[in-house]
Design a protein around this nucleic acid. Structure first.
Lengths: 133, 133
DNA sequence: ATCCCTGCAAAGAGTTTGCAAGTAA
DNA sequence: TTACTTGCAAACTCTTTGCAGGGAT
């Protein structure tokens, strides 16, 4: 399926060592320091391959480009809808019970991959103290 | 802040009466039937205004354009990562407990807006029976 | 030898913006 | 009459793709 590629190795390494949920652009900027001739399309292509290989996760943002996340341990994300900051956290969702509910309501067996919370972080909340929060 | 606008009313109406989680393009196609001279930029502008007004929700897709959702009752979404289908469902997440955990782990008071599950639906699962699911 | 990978440049999808004219308050 | 809204077209951001050459197996 996939041949070895130095570029892909460096890209994965960059994502692994930068737990900042980098965007494709940030991954490119970090990778190009180690592989000066790499092109942005190679970065995009390999990011997609790594997502398919389940070595990294794509994190959907409410605003701005997608971000990526090295899969080191199962965790959840809380994403601020205002500023886009991503927080990792651990929570023991009752996946069996959620699955049971999904099955009842949707009449489908769903495989739960991950659970994401969209909300407002403290900084953004305090910037909006006048509003209806 | 916002003046009345016929176009915006029609757009909201279209979203309200089409619980199919339409994309901006679909909203435009449905709206243009009632308002033949409306432009796509007006649709985009008003969608953003309606999101700001919290009359509709933006639903982030794993693939393809964003979709929109009339806010009629609090519910959660399960989004298939393979085909992009959105399922509405109701689940009584223990938001107080989740908030408590977020506070402990992130040292921030987070306002939870909505909880989205990303997973694989039954159709997509059976199309991949050979794989490691 | 065959298939996968690369860089480059160009194209693509989806969304936003500047502008001059029109409409609401 | 001031501030918000519109349609149009152009610009913009992010991502994907076609191609010819290079590298892995």
């Amino acid at each position: 399926m996939n041949n070895y590629s130095k570029q892909r190795e460096v890209i994965l390494d960059v994502i692994k060592n930068n737990p900042i949920h980098p965007t494709a652009e940030e991954i490119y900027q970090l990778t190009v320091k180690k592989e000066p001739k790499i092109s942005k399309s190679t970065v995009y292509r390999n990011i997609n391959i790594l997502v398919d290989m389940k070595k990294i996760n794509k994190v959907k943002m409410t605003v701005g480009p997608d971000r990526y996340d090295y899969v080191y341990k199962e965790h959840s994300h809380m994403i601020c809808e205002r500023c886009g900051k991503i927080f990792d956290f651990y929570y023991n969702f009752n996946k069996d019970d959620i699955s049971k509910n999904l099955k009842q309501q949707l009449k489908e067996n769903i495989i739960i991959d991950n659970i994401t919370i969209y909300g407002i972080c403290e900084d953004c909340k305090s910037k909006n103290e006048k509003e209806e929060f």
